[in-house]
């Protein structure tokens, strides 16, 4: 119980001093991990021509939110960007062998 009060006291002091607390540093590290994953997914999609329009915008917005300390929003945006990168890659791979569709060939006869 005593230790608990003690560490809480340090936390309050740290906040008051404007020092980065353990939790802020953790948030920042988690966010950067999410951003790295998102950037990698985006790059992977781009190598197969499958990048979607708004990924870049989401990454920018994520950085802005993180800069303001709003890590919940920042992580959400980074996650959305990563997801879109993955979906864009999957989509491009699923389309790589397409040609004239059967309905077009049938319709030409």
């Amino acid at each position: 119980m005593r230790t608990h009060h003690f560490s809480a006291g340090i936390l309050v002091a740290a906040l008051a001093a404007g020092l980065p607390t353990g939790s802020w540093a953790d948030d920042q590290a988690d966010f950067e991990k999410a951003m790295t994953a998102a950037r990698e997914a985006r790059k992977k999609a781009a190598t197969v021509g499958g990048e979607w329009r708004d990924i870049g915008k989401f990454l920018k917005q994520a950085e802005q939110a993180a800069a303001k300390g709003d890590f919940a929003t920042a992580n959400q945006l980074a996650e959305k960007a990563r997801r879109q990168g993955e979906l864009g890659y999957e989509q491009a791979m699923s389309q790589k062998d397409v040609g004239l569709p059967a309905y077009m060939i049938a319709g030409s006869k």
Partner: peptide, 22 residues
């Protein structure tokens, strides 16, 4: 060029052909 024309792309998943062939 042909593959590009018939490949679905983007979040909305449209190819050029979805609108202008189909």
């Amino acid at each position: 060029g042909k593959q590009f024309y018939f490949a679905r792309r983007g979040q909305l998943n449209f190819s050029c052909a979805n609108c202008h062939v189909q």
